[in-house]
């Protein structure tokens, strides 16, 4: 037995393992579903560990928050109270507006355009390795009703989309991921455009907005939300504020920059919208 083992030198090992890798790549490209059970077993084993190390890590690395003095806390509390009062006032006005809106909509026989979405809260348990791709995992999975293509929000803004689900965890691809394209529109004028995820631009704190109609009457500071024609994103989720609108070099479209309202550096809790967007599939080939 030992003699046989010695005959296996490193080159044989290399060949065997490369073969295994190529086989795995082949299987996952041509029959991706076969490997899902394997994936979910490993994730199920690792997810509790990730949860554990996060709770330990968070308590150790957030010690500076505990060090805040009483005085600071009091000041902050006062400020927040003031804000709360102001917001309460605002809220009351908005509620009145809402009543009026409903009455008018009834009159016009229009259904509420922006319905409230059902959400489930989830905790971020791990993020992608390395600095290249912005993906993360959450601690809710198919057992909690999470499905593929559900939208994920935080701070009232769009975070990303669920792209892979196991029993007790799910993976989310953020809109700042390099492969992400989000069909979006301007809240005021309903002009459609695409928000393109990019690491390159996100380092400077913005994402590129492309394919805005050249005649669109949009201006800096307009709010960008997900589009009604998007196939996977629910309508009307805020993405961010637009700046720097320019005519493209081709003179056919405009491009702009959008600053996401979500703080992608400090995501710890997110909300998953459990309503899947219902669309008629017109073109099987397009992907978002």
């Amino acid at each position: 037995m030992k003699l046989q083992r010695k005959k296996m030198n490193s080159n044989h090992y290399l060949a065997v393992f490369i073969a295994v890798c190529v086989l795995l790549i082949g299987i996952s490209v041509f029959a991706g579903g076969v490997l899902t059970p394997v994936k979910s077993i490993v994730t199920t084993i690792l997810a509790p560990m990730q949860r554990g190390i996060n709770s330990v890590g968070n308590s150790v690395f957030s010690w500076d928050e505990n060090m805040k003095t009483q005085k600071q806390l009091k000041e902050e509390n006062e400020q927040l109270q003031e804000r709360l009062n102001a917001l309460r006032m605002q809220n009351r006005i908005l509620q009145q507006d809402q009543v009026e809106l409903e009455r008018l909509q009834d009159l016009l026989k229009l259904k509420a355009k922006y319905k409230k979405y059902n959400t489930v809260g989830a905790r971020v348990i791990s993020k992608g390795s390395g600095n290249w791709f912005e993906i993360f995992a959450i601690d809710k999975g198919s057992k909690d009703g999470i499905k593929k293509d559900m939208n994920v929000i935080a701070d009232n803004g769009l975070v990303g989309i669920v792209y892979d689900v196991t029993a007790h965890s799910a993976k989310v691809r953020t809109i700042i991921n390099d492969t992400s394209m989000v069909s979006s529109m301007f809240l005021k004028t309903k002009d459609n455009c695409i928000v393109r995820g990019s690491l390159d631009t996100m380092a400077d704190g913005y994402l590129e907005v492309v394919y805005i109609d050249k005649d669109a009457k949009v201006k800096d500071g307009d709010e960008l939300v997900t589009s009604y024609i998007s196939s996977k994103f629910n309508e009307g989720i805020t993405i961010g504020k637009v700046t720097n609108i320019k005519l493209d070099s081709t003179k056919l479209t405009k491009t702009a920059r959008v600053t996401p309202i979500v703080d992608f550096k400090h995501l710890k809790e997110v909300l998953v919208i459990t309503d899947l967007k219902k669309t008629e599939s017109l073109d099987e080939g397009t992907k978002e």
Binding site: C21, V22, L24, S28, K39, L46, I135
Partner: peptide, 16 residues
């Protein structure tokens, strides 16, 4: 791969 990729084996190949 298991954690982040859609295609199993690509990072495994690079790392090995």
């Amino acid at each position: 791969d298991i954690f982040s990729g859609d295609v199993l084996g690509q990072y495994a190949l690079v790392y090995l």
